[in-house]
């Protein structure tokens, strides 16, 4: 490994060193927060599914972490259940249904599309459309104003010239 020599005024190496420190601390925290690797799986694919599910399922107790990032008791139990269900050959859909029956839509970071969650899914789109419609209306009216004929007819031009001449 090359260590950049820090000299007075050598901004490049200081920046580089800072960057390395930040990078190192980032990789360290990501290792600390991963709680997922204590389970054994038969295949790589099962392991991948476990990772995906415990990343997408939300810890009901700690609220703003997923199962894989949570140290909470119930998250530990749910990870164990996900592992059990995967090794028993249940599909992702079955596992999600299992979770839904017990913890409801809350357990999903990506909520299902139902009558209750329609607004959650399409609310932003609706707001975008409303905003777009208002914006379009404003733009169209502004365009109308721009194209109004503001040129003077012959008589008015004559009058204007007279006014200017008088001032001089």
């Amino acid at each position: 490994m090359i260590f950049p020599r820090i000299q007075h005024g050598n901004k490049v190496s200081v920046t580089l060193l800072m960057f390395l420190i930040v990078l190192l601390s980032m990789t360290m925290t990501s290792q600390l927060s991963a709680q997922v690797d204590t389970f054994q799986f038969e295949t790589e694919e099962q392991q991948k599914r476990f990772r995906k599910l415990s990343n997408e399922l939300r810890c009901p107790m700690c609220q703003n972490t997923n199962l894989s990032g949570s140290t909470g008791g119930v998250a530990e139990d749910l990870r164990r259940e996900v592992h059990r269900m995967i090794t028993q050959g249940m599909s992702d859909k079955d596992i999600e249904q299992f979770m839904f029956e017990r913890y409801g839509d809350f357990i999903f970071y990506k909520p299902r599309l139902t009558a209750e969650t329609v607004l959650l899914w399409f609310g932003p789109l609706i707001f975008l459309l409303i905003g777009g419609a208002i914006g379009f209306g404003i733009w169209r009216r502004a365009k109308v104003v721009n194209t109004v004929d503001v040129s003077l007819d012959k008589k008015q031009q004559e009058h204007l010239r007279q006014l200017l001449d008088n001032q001089q």
């Binding site: 009901p60 909470g72 119930v74 530990e76 139990d77 749910l78 164990r80 259940e81 017990r102 913890y103």
Partner: peptide
Amino acid sequence: ESGRFGIDLGVYG
């Protein structure tokens, strides 16, 4: 002890 019955109840703490 395992919290398994709690999961069936939807307990979170």
